[in-house]
Design a protein around this nucleic acid. Structure first.
Lengths: 228, 228
DNA sequence: AATATCTATATTGTTGACAATATGTCTCTT
DNA sequence: AAGAGACATATTGTCAACAATATAGATATT
């Protein structure tokens, strides 16, 4: 799973930030737990300076909350925050779909159809497996976001919000509902984009995310309030 | 208005971050200029530690860009980024208006009508003055965002994006177009919210922001590319 | 016994020094 | 004269120690 060994990056602070993000998203550092600077510094074999910078970054990502002279705590996922986050996603990705409809080159559309075909083939092959959101750029949503061409939107959705969303996925029993239904919705969205119907693309994307949100909500309500 | 003298906060890092944000937004630290850590540290009379933390925060806010072993530079406002930002605002504040329509208590609606009356009175009194966005919570948009009740949305719009938006306002000749027209649009949005017409409120808010964006675009295209 | 105060300890906030990298200048070569 | 390379300098990245604040425990008081 998550590499423990440092992925040597340009700067220690970046490294540590990335590792902490992974550790929090995967639950390796449990929700609500305190971030102890001396402890983590010793654990990663670095000094507190870069570590603090990393923690400030995490605060910016909304993964931890900090209070002066007390320290940082990992956020605790709750239903209200999840609903808030997905409502934002609905607005933003809806807009991304609209923009994609007006800007996406036909080559990009073709490439996305090919991606959905791949997903379809995967589903046909592995009946029972859940069509694990591949995370990388095989993710339909990320591709649409990229296609929006809006750099600010791209940064916000695929870097900042993405961490929290990944965290929700990890911490709820990731029973991704009906993958075939999701795929059908993806195809409908892409059709709208291909036809340059921005209004429709936005509407469908919003419905799609709203539905995913409801399913995640059910999953969260079922899963016992995970006691760290 | 905004205090210039240091607002002694709990921690130095917070202080400095706030001061730097103001300095950048007001153009006191010009666009594209390099952030020299030794220089700023000496200037503010602090050490480089807290300063660096502040810079990391600024990076999270999108006010500076950092490259390893080279340093931080203040962003440069350009048309493309402004359009991207306002497109995001359109999506998010549209959603905020929709949510406000479904959640805002009648007392809040009354209070907002009172606010708009105040704005109207101000316009009638000062014919020529431009109805300076008061920044504080007399700002109609901020009130709508608050009324959305979506904590994530509130944080993103009124803390993170707000800094950049303020920067755009400051750096373009702030000829706020036709304030009476803006006020009319605000009233129309509020009417929709009062009637709990979420669809309409969202539509009107998006049109309103889209229009403001076009006006700002014209202003930016006119104003000579400010050479620091 | 319960509460409040004081004290001891640990953690965070801050500082100044050291190491590593980048930038600009100077020299040398062709 | 132009370009490449080496060197000097300044800036960033990192570290370890110090100061200030908060937390927990013990003591004392009512």
């Amino acid at each position: 799973m998550s590499q423990i060994v440092p992925i040597k990056s340009a700067t220690l602070s970046e490294d540590i930030a990335q590792q902490l993000i992974n550790a929090i998203v995967t639950g390796d550092i449990p929700q609500g737990s305190k971030i102890s600077e001396p402890e983590l510094a010793k654990q990663y074999g670095i000094s507190r300076g870069p570590l603090r910078e990393a923690i400030v970054k995490l605060e910016g990502l909304g993964l931890v909350t900090r209070t002066a002279n007390v320290g940082a705590r990992v956020i605790e996922l709750n239903l209200a925050d999840m609903l808030d986050t997905f409502t934002m996603r609905e607005a933003l990705e809806g807009m991304a779909a609209r923009l994609a409809a007006s800007r996406m080159p036909s080559a990009g559309v073709d490439s996305l159809y090919a991606l959905l075909d791949k997903h379809q083939a995967f589903l046909d092959a592995n009946q029972d497996e859940h069509y694990a959101q591949q995370g990388g750029n095989d993710d339909f949503h990320l591709r649409i976001i990229q296609a929006s061409g809006n750099q600010k939107l791209i940064r916000l959705l695929s870097h900042e919000l993405y961490a929290v969303i990944r965290m929700y996925r990890h911490h709820t029993a990731d029973q991704r509902s009906d993958p075939r239904q999701a795929l059908r919705e993806h195809k409908a969205i892409l059709d709208a984009i291909a036809n340059q119907e921005g209004d429709l693309a936005e509407l469908l994307m919003r419905r799609h995310i709203s539905r995913a949100c409801r399913l995640l909500q059910q999953a969260m309500e079922q899963s016992t309030h995970s006691t760290q």
